[in-house]
């Protein structure tokens, strides 16, 4: 399960940045192209967080829709599904500018 390894990595990042305080919320950005299933990630996060400084924290997931710039016509397109295709000219050769995020953006920590 893909989400389990990602959850482990999120917990590790959060623990490293927690300054030994309790973490109440972990805000992550999930690009659509990462093909992460949010419910599976939330479930995995709960499992992995147990016994760490992140236990009980809320995992807040911000999903980022994909967008790309067409290398043929230069236009930007929102990419809502596969195939990834330019909405202007129908070209398939796109430079992805959003949608590949897999990022811990911020934490909420309990005041010491």
């Amino acid at each position: 399960m893909h989400e389990l390894s990602i959850a482990e990595s999120i917990v590790r990042v959060a623990c490293n940045h927690a300054d030994e305080r309790r973490v109440t919320r972990v805000h992550v950005k999930l690009g659509h192209l990462r093909q992460v299933v949010p419910s599976a990630l939330a479930f995995s996060f709960g499992l992995v967080a147990e016994g760490t400084g992140v236990e009980g924290a809320e995992l807040e997931m911000e999903e980022v829709p994909a967008a790309g710039i067409c290398r043929r016509c230069g236009e930007e397109s929102q990419l809502e599904g596969f195939p990834l295709v330019c909405r202007t000219c129908g070209g398939f050769d796109l430079e992805i500018i959003r949608g590949e995020e897999l990022l811990v953006e911020f934490l909420e920590l309990e005041e010491a």
Binding site: V13, H17, V104, E105, F106, L107, E108, L109, E110, E111
Partner: peptide, 8 residues
């Protein structure tokens, strides 16, 4: 709660 930016 305090917010801590991570961006990792």
């Amino acid at each position: 709660a305090v917010k801590k930016v991570v961006l990792e």
